[in-house]
């Protein structure tokens, strides 16, 4: 697997899963929190990725 986006999704999924399990106790809260963390990871990565076009090193 060499797709950076798929790897990003995979990484975000696992980290969000662990965060959700550790930081919430109720299954419904875990799903909600995990989804929020996952979305935040992906969204911030895409935004930062686009910002790196005009402000590349």
């Amino acid at each position: 697997m060499t797709s950076h986006f798929l790897l990003l999704l995979l990484f975000s999924f696992f980290v969000a899963l662990v965060f959700a399990v550790l930081m919430r106790n109720e299954p419904r809260d875990q799903v909600r929190f995990g989804a929020m963390v996952f979305g935040a990871f992906v969204l911030s990565a895409v935004v930062i990725g686009w910002l790196m076009y005009p402000f590349s090193l």
């Binding site: 696992f14 662990v18 550790l22």
Partner: peptide
């Protein structure tokens, strides 16, 4: 449940890192 999820998730992440 928490323990099994953590065991599977963390070892899978580590395995993916090695495989890549």
């Amino acid at each position: 449940t928490k323990g099994i999820i953590l065991l599977v998730a963390l070892t899978t992440m580590f395995g993916i890192g090695l495989a890549l």
